[in-house]
């Protein structure tokens, strides 16, 4: 079970890094960069979690 949490933490770390770079590339001021970083991080996590849930549901349908 610990490995699962490690993997989740690593996933969040890479999402944060991607969010920081894409946020920094869309703004100039510190306030703008922080806002864009949070937006990018949240949208990336939501996208990947959504895709994962979608694939899991598809696999359930395929098994049924």
């Amino acid at each position: 079970m610990d490995r699962v949490w490690v993997r989740i933490a690593l996933f969040l770390v890479v999402c944060l890094a991607v969010g920081m770079v894409t946020g920094a590339s869309r703004a100039t001021t510190l306030r703008g960069i922080v806002r864009k970083t949070v937006e990018q991080f949240a949208s990336l996590v939501a996208l990947i979690v959504g895709l994962s849930i979608g694939l899991w549901l598809l696999s359930l349908v395929a098994q049924a």
Binding site: V13, V14, M20, V21, A24, S25, T28, L30, T37
Partner: peptide, 19 residues
């Protein structure tokens, strides 16, 4: 002359690479 984008880029890429 863009300080904060540079700081954020550095702070995101270097730790990710080292990790």
């Amino acid at each position: 002359g863009r300080l904060w984008p540079g700081v954020f880029t550095f702070a995101a890429i270097i730790p990710l690479f080292v990790l």
